[in-house]
């Protein structure tokens, strides 16, 4: 076969492949690998993290601003210690609170940041003071049933 046709087709093939890769990286995957360097870490302690896993999204006002880095059990405080990596483009006041929320009724759990009103912002390595644990469905149902039986007992 003519050399130039082979060259042309191999070129088309490779460019097509690279375009697919770019499509997979930017359109399909969250292209957070670019901003991976420009981020800061926050630490939050929870009484109960429910089913929170590493890589779970961190959202504020519904926008993904970071990811959960690691989930550990702290032997000193006997609570769950969660490390969160937040994109440097997003800054939050020092008195912001974090809570563990669930997407949908039975969906995955994620961390929500509610901004506070402080003038200083959280910086790398900061510990978030105000945290709210995950709502465990079994506990809620248990409490509901308990209060129901208490009501019927009164009658």
């Amino acid at each position: 076969m003519d050399r130039r046709i082979v060259d042309l087709w191999v070129g088309v093939f490779v460019i097509f492949g690279l375009l697919s890769l770019v499509f997979l990286a930017f359109k399909v995957g969250s292209s957070n690998f670019i901003s991976a360097s420009a981020s800061y870490t926050l630490i939050a302690e929870f009484d109960n993290i429910g089913g929170l896993k590493p890589k779970a999204p961190v959202k504020s006002a519904g926008v993904v601003v970071g990811r959960v880095e690691s989930v550990d059990f702290d032997n000193q405080s006997l609570r769950a210690k969660v490390q969160v990596r937040v994109d440097e483009r997003y800054q939050f006041p020092k008195d912001s609170s974090v809570s563990i929320l669930t997407s949908g009724l039975l969906g995955d759990q994620f961390i929500g940041i509610d901004p506070g009103g402080d003038e200083d912002n959280l910086v790398d390595g900061d510990r978030v003071r105000i945290t709210q644990s995950a709502i465990v469905l079994e506990k809620v149902i248990g409490q509901f049933l308990y209060s129901k039986t208490a009501e019927t007992d009164k009658k």
Binding site: A25, G29, S30, F33, K55, P57
Partner: peptide, 9 residues
Amino acid sequence: MQASVDFWG
């Protein structure tokens, strides 16, 4: 799709 597909992972 973007929320659940990670580039490296």
